[in-house]
């Protein structure tokens, strides 16, 4: 049992995008060198604007997508060498939209017991009992066992998805915007449920969210993503009290919108989010940065370790500061 449960180093994922019928395909670096260590038992939040690569990173960590470069380890073992069923027992996803994450042709019972069936777990006679225990744990009445997803509310569906993810007691649960498709009144119920389950089952969470209030409430650490890279990683109170990266500051300054479907609110960043196929040179944030310096458009910033994480910005690069002083 190592302290670090998930470890990513310089992970890349590139998609080939066709730019038109007669044009050659171009690479899109959806995840472009992510380095991240996740400690056992922590709640790591990943925030960032739409299209910055959060879902792609989640899929890489789940082993659903092979990385184009870099190394992902779960419990010290390279993800791509872990057998399928063992992987399923280690890390599980909870998706955003419970209307598309449950097979409409299967009953609640069939959905929740499927992981046991696939794992050929123990004795089939215990499956139903274990599914019902899990349903009780996530707050689903047992009478729903034979119902179909179209007979459930959004919140109930999300509980089914949570039960399915947790029935094999995974170590890590990756929640990709677990509440943004739900009614506001149901969101906090689901978040509280996730909180409770973490204590009960010793889970490690990776929570992707657009909602900074949720992040502040749930997370122990926060990773801020911009154009496929983690530009700042810090303890939650550190990040909210004293953000380092100018992008993080802009995110925090933006007014929180209560409607999560609006996504990350207007960041007052002026220039639009860049086309990820054509990222800006140097530091990819420089066209929108309030504290841009001359070399920002030339040189990509290094990863500077800070307490509890890192920051990627020339403002904190001691060496560069010195070079500048010499020059």
């Amino acid at each position: 049992m190592s302290e670090i449960i998930v470890s990513a180093s310089d992970v890349m994922r590139t998609f080939m995008i066709s730019a038109g019928v007669f044009r050659a395909k171009r690479p899109l670096h959806a995840v472009n060198g992510v380095t991240l260590d996740i400690r056992r038992g922590e709640v790591l939040a990943i925030v960032g604007e739409s299209g910055c690569g959060k879902t792609t990173l989640a899929k890489l960590l789940l082993g659903l997508l092979p990385p184009s470069g870099g190394d992902i380890r779960l419990d010290g073992r390279p993800v791509m060498t872990i057998p399928r069923l063992e992987m399923a027992g280690l890390v599980q996803p909870i998706f955003q939209d419970p209307y598309s994450s449950l097979n409409p042709r299967k009953s609640v019972g069939a959905i929740i017991t499927l992981p046991l069936v696939v794992q050929k777990d123990q004795d089939p006679s215990t499956w139903r009992r274990r599914a019902e225990e899990m349903m009780a744990l996530v707050g689903l009445p047992p009478r729903l066992y034979n119902n179909f997803p179209n007979q459930l509310s959004g919140g109930q569906r999300q509980r089914v998805a949570i039960a399915r993810a947790l029935i094999n007691r995974p170590e890590v649960v990756i929640c990709d915007e677990p509440t943004s498709a739900l009614d506001v009144s149901v969101q906090s119920q689901i978040l509280n449920l996730l909180q409770d389950l973490r204590g009960e089952l010793n889970l490690t969470y990776i929570i992707i969210s657009h909602n900074l209030a949720v992040v502040e409430h749930m997370a122990t650490r926060v990773a801020v993503m911009y154009l496929g890279r983690i530009v700042e990683l810090a303890e939650t109170d550190q990040l909210f009290k004293a953000p380092k990266h100018p992008y993080t500051m802009a995110l925090l300054e933006s007014v929180l919108t209560p409607d999560p479907s609006l996504g990350i609110p207007d960041t007052h960043l002026g220039a639009a989010y860049p086309n990820p196929v054509d990222p800006p040179s140097g530091c990819t944030f420089h066209p929108r940065c309030a504290q841009v310096m001359a070399h920002c458009s030339v040189q990509a910033p290094k990863r500077v370790p800070v307490e509890g994480g890192h920051v990627e910005c020339h403002l904190f690069d001691a060496n560069l500061g010195k070079e500048k002083a010499i020059a």
Binding site: L64, G89, Q92, P93, F95, S101, L114, A161
Partner: peptide, 26 residues
Amino acid sequence: NLDYVAAAQAIGCSKMRIIFSEIMPN
């Protein structure tokens, strides 16, 4: 491309099972 297929993959279902029990019925 629906999430329940991704969920089935994450659960560890084989390709055969995904095709016959997640995709075909739908």
